[in-house]
Amino acid sequence: MESIIEVNNLEKEYKLGKVSVPALKGVNTKIYSGEFVAIMGPSGSGKSTLMHILGCLDTATAGDYFLNGEEVSKMKKNQLAAIRNKEIGFVFQTFNLLPHLNISKNVELPLMYAGMHKSERKKQAVKVLQEVGLGNRLQHKPNELSGGQRQRVAIARAIINNPSIILADEPTGNLDTTSGNDILSIFTELNKLGHTIVMVTHDPVVAKKASRVVYIVDGLIKDGAVD
């Protein structure tokens, strides 16, 4: 099977004044195309840090990171921006939508930065919003929607550029059980359609939806550990 993500000895240190705090201490892992992987671990274990590095929002202090066989860890800032734009779709716990834009405009954002023409990206935004069941809410602002609906907007935004991988950081953390399950079934659906998904969670019930669970404890991957 073809690996989408491969990290070798990934290390990350944060500098707090004069003290260096290690967050990742040499992570090795591979994620394959079509997988639905859950990353679990207690808070402070480094799972968010790993997520940020995988999402090209942050860079590792040491180690290699290959995305689709390309060495991301050696890329320049503008290249990383292009990777974030085309290869990665983010879904956050707090949705992270722009409050003053309607949801259609929110979903268009990645295409706008990709330089796509206005009318074309509008068409695509409508299409993905219909896919997540919000085709009748295009002109609404995020604060006019429920939490579950907002997260669906965020998912639409994440998939509009047809990325290699979807990174979800506690996507159900701010939702009630029903909406949370809705969101998880959307992820399952997307996974069936061929999307590769990496989801950070601390909830074992949520993690069960994934095809594989990776545990991270104290900055290291613990393979085979079972909850």
Binding site: G55, L57, K77, N78, A81, A82, R84, N85, K86, F90, N96, L97, L98, L109, P110, Y113, A114, R157, N161
Partner: peptide, 14 residues
Amino acid sequence: REIGIRITVGARRR
């Protein structure tokens, strides 16, 4: 936060 979101979805510094 808005700037962070824009960077996340692919905005370059420029």
